[in-house]
């Protein structure tokens, strides 16, 4: 039993790294494995960079690293919110963070044409949306969970409407396509700078959720029972919401909206490792990271262009999920 757990822990840690290293070998610019090996060694030994070194170190690796961060954030946020809301159909965007970020990004695209401002606006509006949902949830505090869900629905639809408004007035030749592409998700803007920007909220959020993972189990028993087991439920719920929001907003602001990961990766985790959040949270983190890196690689190599992430996450993830369901006969539901 203990041995099995150590193996699992090692697998969870190493799988995303393996996916990232694998990504260095994949792409449209033809590089042989030997050249890639040279590129890795060159940079590490400080030799002047050639084209191969640049492609591996400045394009493929940052992209894979960012992808793993984004995938991990979305999957863990989804798992945590499912537990908090006691509902397996909840996803990472439940409280409006994706809708808010989408609006913020579109606004920045129209106003500034500047990547950094897109990150900033997407992040801030994502946070703002959740804050509004949370305030709506507090209006009537006898049924806080249902009110929060309603708050999320209301805020999401308001920001979706505002987003439509911006699309409507945007310049249809330059701005509108950028907005549409942003909303389908992409890692093409990945750089070490974007990794750095995104890593601060992502790290805080993920670390917080790792610390809260036992309490998410207890919170999933429902308010009354969680309170009778000694939790300060308002505080703990707020901490979980803040952590998921930081992680999701930090991820989405650099990658755009990526569907599916925050809903279904946690379920793959549930099927593989069970529903105990102590295990599910780290498993989701690892699975989400691997999944998005692999999907992004496929998106880059399947066609000459780049297929936006949200398209592939669902087209490839969907059948795979059905396969898992079938194989495990539903996984305990």
């Amino acid at each position: 039993m203990k041995f099995k757990r150590i193996i699992l822990a090692l697998a969870l840690v190493f799988a995303p790294f393996a996916c990232i290293v694998l990504s260095a070998f994949l792409g449209r610019y033809p590089l042989s494995p030997v050249e890639i090996f040279h590129a890795i060694v060159n940079r590490l030994s400080g030799v002047a960079p050639d084209v191969g070194t640049n492609i591996v170190w400045e394009i493929r690796l940052p992209r894979a690293i960012l992808g793993s961060m984004v995938g991990a954030s979305l999957a863990v946020s989804g798992a945590a919110l499912q537990g908090l809301f006691r509902n397996p159909l909840v996803s990472s965007g439940m409280l409006g963070v994706s809708a808010g970020a989408g609006f913020g990004a579109a606004l920045a695209i129209v106003l500034f044409h500047n990547t950094f401002m897109i990150y900033l606006f997407a992040f801030l509006f994502g946070i703002l949306a959740v804050a509004l949902s949370y305030m709506i949830g507090r209006i009537y505090d006898t049924a806080p969970v249902i009110m929060l869900v309603l708050g999320g629905v209301i805020v999401s639809s308001i920001f979706s409407a505002l987003l439509s408004l911006i699309k409507y007035i945007a310049d249809p030749y330059v701005e509108l396509p950028s907005i549409v592409f942003w909303l389908m998700g992409s890692l093409s803007s990945a750089s070490y700078k974007s990794i750095l920007i995104s890593s601060i909220p992502v790290f805080i959020g993920l670390a917080g959720l790792m610390l809260m993972r036992w309490r998410i189990n207890v919170l999933s028993m429902g308010d009354r029972e969680a309170r009778s087991m000694g939790l300060n439920i308002n505080l703990d719920r707020a901490v979980v919401i803040i952590c998921t929001t930081l992680a999701t907003a930090g991820a989405v602001c650099v990658s755009g909206i990526i569907g599916w990961v925050g809903l279904v990766i946690p379920h793959m985790g549930r099927i593989i490792a069970g529903n105990d959040n102590r295990i599910l949270i780290p498993v989701s983190m690892s699975l989400g990271a691997c999944f998005l890196v692999i999907i992004d690689n496929l998106g880059r190599i399947i066609t000459g262009g780049e297929i936006p992430l949200s398209i592939l996450t669902a087209i490839i993830g969907g059948p795979f999920f059905v396969y898992l369901l079938k194989k495990t006969k539903g996984g305990g539901w």
């Binding site: 537990g83 006691r86 509902n87 397996p88 189990n217 999933s220 028993m221 429902g222 009354r224 029972e225 009778s228 549930r270 069970g274 529903n275 105990d276 996984g331 305990g332 539901w333």
Partner: peptide, 12 residues
């Protein structure tokens, strides 16, 4: 505390 009915959610 033991409630009247415990509402089950996830298969723990």
């Amino acid at each position: 505390y033991v409630p009247q009915v415990h509402e089950r959610t996830f298969p723990y």
